[in-house]
């Protein structure tokens, strides 16, 4: 599969009063054309920072991409581009939708103008043509009465509608890569499902690659081709959807899978919840970051960071349990062979 995006050894830090917070620590991954990648993990694991780094959207929040990191998109070195060159790619070749649709749209600009702004930024076209394109886009994201909606302001739309508008803006110039940063987190469950259906059909229609950032593994199964599980700024397990859901190897992935609500109902047991909190990213990590919360923790886990170990071409795990000398452990009941249809 052709590679669209290559991220190598990505390190992102935030300088705070308390010191340097290493939010992303040496993340590498590839994304092929038309491929959908899901980044999952709990809050603060670096998944959003990684996705923003791809578009170099971190400067406003003070994030610094460290030397030695490499991001290549369609053969271009993203980190070496000038702001001008970068702006030519942003919004046209790759675009992003954000978590909170309530605040992601300018409150004093009509949604029509906000969609058209993207078109005008990248194309020389007439207002009439841009308007027609905007109406077309609103139809595409299934917003009724697009002609009148164009003149609406964000506060006149519901949360789900606003997220649809965000998608319309993102798709205005047929991007090759769409980054969706927790697109459904702020919405209620029924709208979530509708929106994910919409994203899935648009992904096919536009032949886009998609990076879906989420903490909800339930959303992932039907959407993504590949999954990478992140923890404390590193990828702890990656693989195809089948590999992650059918034969997960990392105890953290097990914990995530165990805490999907639907599965607990089936077994009529109490919903699993992982105890503890992720490590403080201010401090240097000298052990497996998950060790303090891991019920399979061994002495070695507290002494050295496990290297990523590839079981197949696609399935990688960074866990000492994969070491030949480690004892064989069985995943918790119900994990593996998870039916994701």
């Amino acid at each position: 599969m052709d590679s669209l995006l290559t991220v190598k050894n990505l390190n992102v830090s935030f300088n705070t009063y308390a010191g340097e917070v290493k939010a992303v620590r040496g993340v590498s991954f590839d994304l092929g054309v038309k491929e959908a990648l899901a980044m999952v993990g709990e809050s603060g694991c670096g998944k959003t920072v990684t996705s923003k780094a791809v578009m170099r959207l971190l400067s406003r929040s003070g994030g610094i991409i460290k030397e030695g990191s490499r991001i290549e998109f369609m053969g271009q070195d993203i980190l070496g581009l000038s702001t001008r060159e970068l702006n030519r790619i942003r919004g046209s070749k790759m675009s992003m939708i954000f978590q909170d649709s309530m605040t992601s749209l300018n409150p004093t600009m009509t949604i029509g103008n906000q969609i058209m702004e993207n078109i005008f930024t990248h194309e020389k076209t007439t207002r009439q043509k841009a308007r027609e394109r905007a109406i077309e886009l609103l139809k595409l994201v299934e917003i009724p009465n697009p002609e009148t909606r164009l003149k609406n302001y964000p506060h006149q739309l519901s949360g789900g509608m606003r997220q649809r508008v965000m998608i319309a803006i993102a798709l205005a110039l047929n991007p090759s890569l769409l980054i969706a940063d927790e697109p459904t987190t702020a919405l209620d469950v029924t709208i979530q499902a509708q929106l994910m259906d919409l994203l899935r059909s648009l992904k096919e229609r536009f032949s886009m690659s998609v990076i879906l950032v989420t903490h909800d593994l339930g959303v992932v199964a039907d959407f993504a081709d590949k999954v990478q599980v992140m923890y404390a700024g590193t990828i702890v397990e990656r693989g195809t959807v089948d590999e992650i859901f059918d034969s997960p190897r990392h105890p953290y992935t097990w914990a995530l899978l165990s805490s999907i609500p639907g599965r607990a109902q089936e077994s009529k047991s109490k919903l699993y919840s992982l105890q503890g909190t992720p490590p403080d990213l201010l401090l240097p990590l000298q052990q497996c970051p998950f060790a303090p919360r891991c019920q399979y923790c061994m002495p070695i886990c507290k002494k050295a960071i496990p290297k990523e170990n590839f079981l197949t071409d696609t399935h990688g795990v960074a866990c000492w349990l994969q070491h030949p000398m480690a004892p064989k452990v069985t995943p918790p009941a119900g994990i593996g062979g998870y039916d994701h249809e």
Partner: peptide
């Protein structure tokens, strides 16, 4: 929404 604008290029 400033981030959105930035992401639009």
């Amino acid at each position: 929404f400033i981030l959105t604008a930035e992401a639009k290029g």
